[in-house]
């Protein structure tokens, strides 16, 4: 196989594999919002005060997904 084609193939496959990481972030975000919702249903009075924690957890979790997106973009456009 000619090296250019092999490189392109590796890039595309690598980008695809990197995107699997975003699935993990999806699971994490689901866990966070689900737990927030069940906690909020148990104690609605405390729900509003924990909203910033919710957003913080969402941001940190989603950052992992974004990292894998960065890797995928890097492989696609910058390698």
């Amino acid at each position: 196989m000619d090296p250019e084609a092999a490189k392109l193939m590796g890039k595309l496959i690598g980008a695809g594999i990197a995107c699997i990481g975003m699935g993990g972030a999806g699971v994490g975000v689901g866990v966070i919002f689900g737990n927030y919702l069940s906690g909020a249903l148990r104690n609605p009075a405390a729900a509003a005060s924990q909203f910033s924690n919710l957003i913080f957890g969402f941001a940190v979790t989603e950052a992992m997904g974004i990292f894998s997106l960065v890797i995928a973009f890097l492989l696609l456009y910058a390698v």
Binding site: I55, L69, F73
Partner: peptide, 20 residues
């Protein structure tokens, strides 16, 4: 290359959280 993409993508992520 590649730092513009990396930095601006991460900044975009932060902006997204701010938007939300």
């Amino acid at each position: 290359r590649p730092w513009g993409l990396v930095v601006l993508l991460l900044l975009g992520f932060a902006a997204g959280v701010v938007n939300v």
